[in-house]
Write a protein that binds this DNA or RNA. Structure first.
Lengths: 177, 177
DNA sequence: GTCTATAAGACGATAGAC
DNA sequence: GTCTATCGTCTTATAGAC
């Protein structure tokens, strides 16, 4: 269970970013919980943005992986639900924080969240989608993603909730379900 | 078209909060666009939080109004779509910014966004809801709200998109649709 | 790997003139 | 209603000792 200071900084940052936002959290806030000095943080990270970057690296890679294989819409939506539930803490911490988004977009990292969203929507809508299919892809994706966010408690999405949520997403995607 | 300095401050704040977050936006950022001094802003607002409070007042009241009348699920979901589309700029500016949420929760204003969300979900799920109905209410609400966010362009949600989105939300809510 | 100390500037907010 | 000037504090980040 030896966490290492670097990992502890990331975990503390995740909690504080979720509560106060990226811009609203200072290095001093982090060290107050860490119990060390500010200089200790700067030994492990070049700057404040590097903490944010390390925090989003793994979940962003997991989302990007979802569209790298051709899967059925059902498999893709199920994967969106499961990935969202498993990285919910990070998503709540920086998912829609404008100050975090602004910093990450300047970093020009490997996986960009906007590109990932577009790829998932394109996979659900299919090639040359009509307005109807484009709207339905949006609807299904929002059920899976934001439904998982709202229904996950204590990092856990119940099996019954998962089944019902996936069924609702498929109904939103296609009237035949 | 006389806007008034106070209203111009709110409009500039909305744009900057959306791009950089509440905590990531300084009074100096606002006055740089306004073309005046910082003291001019403090003539119109007591402090920085008062700008945020003025910005969310109208959209929050509009959302709170949605559950004050007993309407069918279809009418409620349609109202969610329309209200979200019409206040999209404010929602994008502060909808999920943790630094803005933290400030607003301390202000203890009349309408709290968490209460509004709970009321809408309760209205969709009905009394003593089963897990199934609870999940379906979540799914339908997420289609309406986040679907409207994703599909509104230039402040306008197309009529075909609106019709399809409402239908998808109703399918997510109830398999009979 | 962590410390103390400090630089250099940005921040929210105010005083007082006009 | 807006200005200049400023206060005190907080901020990111670094230097150098241990």
């Amino acid at each position: 269970m030896e966490a290492g200071t670097r990992q502890r900084i990331i975990e503390i940052a995740r909690e504080l970013f979720a509560a106060q936002g990226y811009a609203g959290t200072s290095i001093a806030d982090i060290t107050n919980r860490l119990g060390t000095s500010k200089a200790a943080v700067y030994y492990h990270f070049d700057n404040k943005a590097a903490i944010l970057s390390a925090l989003v690296e793994e979940p962003l890679a997991a989302y990007a992986h979802l569209t790298e294989t051709q899967a059925s819409a059902e498999d893709l939506l199920a994967a969106v639900i499961d990935t969202t539930a498993s990285y919910l803490d990070v998503i709540e911490a920086i998912g829609n924080d404008p100050s975090a988004r602004a910093v990450l977009s300047e970093l020009a990292q490997k996986h960009r969240s906007d590109d990932i969203n577009d790829a998932i929507l394109a996979a659900l809508a299919g090639p040359s989608p009509s307005t109807k299919r484009r709207v339905r892809a949006h609807a299904a994706y929002m059920v899976a993603k934001h439904g998982a966010i709202g229904l996950t408690t204590d990092g856990n999405l119940g099996a019954r909730e998962r089944t019902e949520l996936l069924a609702a997403a498929l109904r939103a995607l296609d009237a035949d379900h």
